[in-house]
């Protein structure tokens, strides 16, 4: 089985980038995010999907929030059972906020997997896909410096404040960089060579002691 090695001018590589990763937990979570769908025609006997409706059928033009994985199946090139709207955070008003100053935006609140879901939205043909592509790239580029500086300098601090406003991918980059730096610092002081009791054993001992007290 060959892997597409062509340049991005071929549709194959693009589709690989946007493809869902079946076994990846992060991907599964992202695919659960809701997307606004408008039904293009009546769908019989599935009215119960909409909790707000008491009708038996889904009416044409009914709007519903459906998880991305379902929306993707219902909105393909071959058959368009629903049309989709981008979630607000991917639309022009929010993209303008990003363009103004990407660094102050709380992407975790917009997301939490802002980039990842954004990438998946390109599976749908949409008028606003071009500005979205530009917006995502520019945002990532602008925010990189902050991610880099904070991950390389955070010394034994509580990293919660530093990662609060980061999207999941940025958090991943932060975490792996931070671990790498901490590993280097440990090496510098000679702690790499020391054996120490694992955290799991320490907490187990504490728990056992409590059990004894109770009985």
């Amino acid at each position: 089985m060959s892997y597409p090695e062509a340049s991005p001018s071929t549709p194959q590589l693009f589709s690989t980038l946007k493809k869902d990763n079946y076994f990846d937990l992060d991907d599964i979570i992202v695919c659960q995010e809701k997307v606004t769908c408008t039904f293009q025609s009546t769908v019989h006997r599935l009215g119960y999907i909409d909790p707000g409706s008491n009708k038996e059928d889904i009416q044409e033009d009914a709007k519903m929030e459906l998880p991305y994985w379902l929306a993707k199946a219902l909105c393909t090139r071959k058959r368009k059972i629903v049309s989709i709207e981008y979630p607000n955070v991917y639309r022009s008003s929010y993209l303008q906020i990003l363009a103004a100053d990407a660094n102050v935006v709380d992407l975790h609140k917009w997301g939490p997997s802002y980039y990842r879901l954004g990438e998946k939205l390109f599976n749908f043909e949409h008028d606003e896909s071009r500005p979205l592509a530009e917006g995502l790239l520019q945002a990532f580029i602008s925010r990189f410096r902050k991610v880099m500086d904070s991950s390389q300098n955070a010394q034994y601090q509580d990293t919660y404040q530093l990662t609060e406003k980061l999207d999941e991918i940025e958090r991943k980059i932060f975490k792996s960089t931070r671990q790498n730096v901490e590993d280097f610092e440990r090496w510098q002081v000679g702690k790499s060579n020391q054996l120490s009791t694992s955290e799991a054993i320490l907490s187990h001992r504490k728990r056992k002691h409590t059990d004894d007290n109770v009985s």
Binding site: M1, Y3, E5, N21, Y22, F23, D24
Partner: peptide, 10 residues
């Protein structure tokens, strides 16, 4: 399997 198998990111 062929459709869903995890592949390394080259």
């Amino acid at each position: 399997e062929a459709k869903e198998l995890p592949k390394p990111n080259k």
